[in-house]
């Protein structure tokens, strides 16, 4: 008793050490995250090329979103919207396949009645493509699907007589996009499967047992038990995939022969990189495009979140309090 009475008087604050220990992170965070973020905002209001240091107000945004009378303005607007269109196409294409596949696998692998053996092994196998760097994956697919008759697939098809001339798998608008969608799904489905599986494993088996005793079918259990309880994880997967998808860069950027990026694969992030990285520094376009992408991601994220969370949930919590 005595001890506890004395303690408050003698209390030494160790908080400052705590702050000191976490300080490096926040310093690094401010330097590498906050400053670039603010600077991007500033840059988006500055010019391009020779006028890179001058304030131009909303001109970059205006050109990107609405174009203008000059050729440059229209050209930038065109390219930006094309790149945004490409981003959406590539994201939807890879996300739908990826989600369906992952959900299916996750349900199968976690189903107590099927009891698949060697789940650990399959998890590793499914996750493996994600470990390979994007550069290697792109290199591999370039070799497989090379445009000319020297590409592996092309040479096979030509040898079998299925093709008369080499098919430009990468340069062709849709086959190129399908390749990117396939690579992205292939690289990321393992990751998504693991996330969904962990969600499903968190569901109380007793519920399934009760359901099966009452005679409900697998389909029924999936839609009535698994999906509703999985919703938070599901939303998390959708939102992270959306953010990742809108920033899709590496594969679309790498998947081309010769020296130029394929215009049909140019995503928003590739657009940003392209203009940022030229000798005539077009920082303004890049920064403005980054901000537009940022706002878009935030808005879409919020919408998805709102649509999918139970609107009565906050009220319940309040009532409980």
């Amino acid at each position: 008793m005595q001890k506890s009475q004395k303690k408050p008087a003698k209390m030494v604050s160790y908080a400052k050490y705590g702050y000191m220990f976490i300080a490096p992170f926040f310093i690094a965070y401010a330097f590498f995250m906050i400053y670039p973020l603010i600077n991007t905002f500033i840059l988006s209001f500055k010019g391009n090329g020779a006028t890179v240091d001058e304030w131009v107000g909303f001109q970059n945004y205006q050109w990107l979103l609405f174009g203008g009378e000059q050729r440059a303005a229209n050209s930038i607007q065109n390219e930006f919207w094309t790149s945004m269109g490409n981003t959406v196409i590539l994201w939807v294409g890879n996300f739908v396949i990826q989600l369906v596949l992952s959900l299916l696998l996750a349900v199968w692998f976690s189903d107590v009645r099927i009891k698949i053996k060697g789940t650990g092994f399959f998890k590793v196998v499914m996750y493996l493509p994600n470990i390979i760097t994007a550069a290697s994956v792109a290199g591999m697919f370039l070799m497989l699907f090379g445009n000319s008759k020297f590409g592996a697939i092309n040479s096979l098809l030509l040898n079998w007589g299925w093709l008369q001339d080499a098919f430009p798998f990468i340069n062709n608008e849709w086959s190129g996009r399908i390749l990117v969608m396939f690579i992205q799904s292939w690289m990321w489905f393992g990751n998504t499967t693991l996330l969904l599986m962990s969600g499903i494993f968190g569901i109380d088996p007793a519920i399934y047992e009760a359901a099966s005793i009452d005679g409900s079918s697998g389909m029924h259990m999936f839609f009535r038990i698994t999906m509703p309880i999985l919703k938070p994880i599901f939303i998390y997967v959708v939102i992270t995939s959306l953010i990742g998808g809108l920033q899709m860069f590496d594969i679309p950027y790498l998947l081309h022969e010769g020296t130029t990026i394929r215009p049909t694969l140019e995503t928003g992030a590739v657009f940003i990189y392209k203009y940022f990285h030229q000798v005539s520094p077009n920082y303004g376009y890049s920064a403005a495009a980054s901000i537009v992408l940022f706002i878009l991601t935030a808005v879409l994220g919020i919408i998805i979140y709102r649509f999918n969370t139970d609107s009565t949930a906050p009220k319940k919590r309040k009532a409980a309090k």
């Binding site: 090329g49 020779a50 006028t51 050729r71 440059a72 050209s75 203009y275 005539s280 077009n282 376009y285």
Partner: peptide
């Protein structure tokens, strides 16, 4: 081609 040049070199 002209569009691409205009976009790359606003000057």
């Amino acid at each position: 081609f002209k569009d691409a040049v205009a976009a790359s070199f606003p000057d």
